[in-house]
């Protein structure tokens, strides 16, 4: 077994897992964080997207042990009890999701984009979402929501 200790959604957490355990499996099964989804399991669909040290990654393509000593942020760490993250709020306002399976991954990709680029163009947003497959929506309303969230976050920054 491997001991993994990390900062998970702001709290120090640890787990003991077999060495071949992926980060995704540990999140879902050791911590019951089921927001990141098991989709393709080969890094194509992006449903398992989480942030490790602020960078978006496919949780299905990392071993749990690789996040030892690092910071992991999942969709569950984005909202507080009172407030949704502006990206989540915008996805609700614009009805950006239908079935919702891809949603946590898409929103984490959007969060990583906006952390780095507060005013992305539409091509930049499309590029940032190219690792997240959605078979319901056609992405249009996601892009509108991300633009709106970017506006709100920029306004907050200046306030």
């Amino acid at each position: 077994m491997t001991e993994v200790k990390m900062k998970l959604n702001g709290e120090t957490r640890s787990a003991s897992v077999p060495p071949e355990t992926t980060l995704l499996k540990m999140l879902r099964e050791s911590f019951n964080l089921t927001g990141a989804k098991l989709g393709c399991d080969v890094g194509d669909c992006g449903a398992c997207t989480v942030l490790v040290d602020g960078m978006s990654v496919n949780a299905c393509l990392m071993l749990a042990n690789q996040v030892d000593g690092r910071e992991v942020l999942t969709i569950e760490g984005l909202a507080t009890v009172e407030y949704l993250h502006p990206v989540q709020e915008a996805f609700e306002t614009f009805a950006s999701l239908q079935c919702g399976f891809c949603g946590p991954g898409v929103i984490m990709s959007a969060k990583a984009l906006l952390d780095e680029n507060p005013d992305p163009t539409i091509p930049e947003i499309r590029d940032a979402l190219s690792g997240n497959l959605c078979r319901c929506t056609g992405y249009t309303k996601m892009i509108e929501a991300i633009q709106d969230a970017a506006r709100i976050l920029r306004a907050k920054e200046h306030a």
């Binding site: 890094g43 978006s56 496919n58 393509l61 990392m62 940032a128 190219s130 690792g131």
Partner: peptide, 8 residues
Amino acid sequence: GAVQTRNL
């Protein structure tokens, strides 16, 4: 690939 795979 895409952002996530380029990050890894």
